[in-house]
Nucleic acid binder design. Structure first.
Lengths: 104, 104
DNA sequence: GAATCACATAAGTACGTGCTTATCTGTTAC
DNA sequence: GTAACAGATAAGCACGTACTTATGTGATTC
């Protein structure tokens, strides 16, 4: 069940930080490590978890590996969340505004 | 950081099942256990985790405790997700339709 | 008020997870 | 080819987590 891997992947604050950094712009693993105080193997392991959860995808570029956000994972969270739309509070209006912004 | 508790809470499949069951209708802990093959203490512990994550809230009713979905937690996930709207894929259209449905 | 019921909490245990150091793989540069 | 570099994988370890059994707490019923 991929849903499980997604939530498990995001349950770790370090991994969410990595994901957030990638969301601001795709990057290779060394770039991600900058200013993060994390060892090379740890970063590699975190990226593997994010990747297998469908939150991140990779692309070899010479001896570098470029990582970027994979929309697939985000879509699955959106789907999961949509199941409970009956409970979304009024402030969901903000989300609607954001969706409207996307049209432009 | 509550965001952390939310994702950690949802990372467990048993807890997601409990949450899903509650989303279909509020219920007390015994009701939740029905057809779930889970011990009473385990259920109690899971509910405590969901509660502290803001995904579920409780209300004492005599010697029963009624549990229901807390929109607060869902709203936080929606907010988190909204940050990455730039990466949402085309199929997010479905989500928009759902949001439109809410207006009626 | 004593028994029962719904649930919470405590303590122990097996297993999962995130890290470490060490090493391997694949690519580039000389 | 060989040295250097980017990154992955292996193995081990400390700690967290989800369960168990046992017991505690508050409300109800008679």
């Amino acid at each position: 069940m991929i849903e499980n891997e997604i939530f498990r992947a995001l349950a770790d604050p370090t991994r969410r930080a990595i994901f957030e950094k990638l969301a601001a712009g795709s990057m290779n693993a060394s770039g991600l490590r900058e200013g993060m105080e994390i060892s090379q193997p740890a970063m590699s392991q975190h990226l593997a978890v994010l990747r297998s959860a469908g939150l991140v995808r990779e692309e070899r570029q010479g001896r570098f590996v470029n990582y970027e956000v994979d929309p697939e994972g985000l879509a699955l969270i959106a789907q999961w969340l949509a199941k409970y739309r009956a409970y979304w509070p009024a402030r969901i209006e903000a989300l609607k505004v954001l969706l409207k912004d996307m049209d432009q």
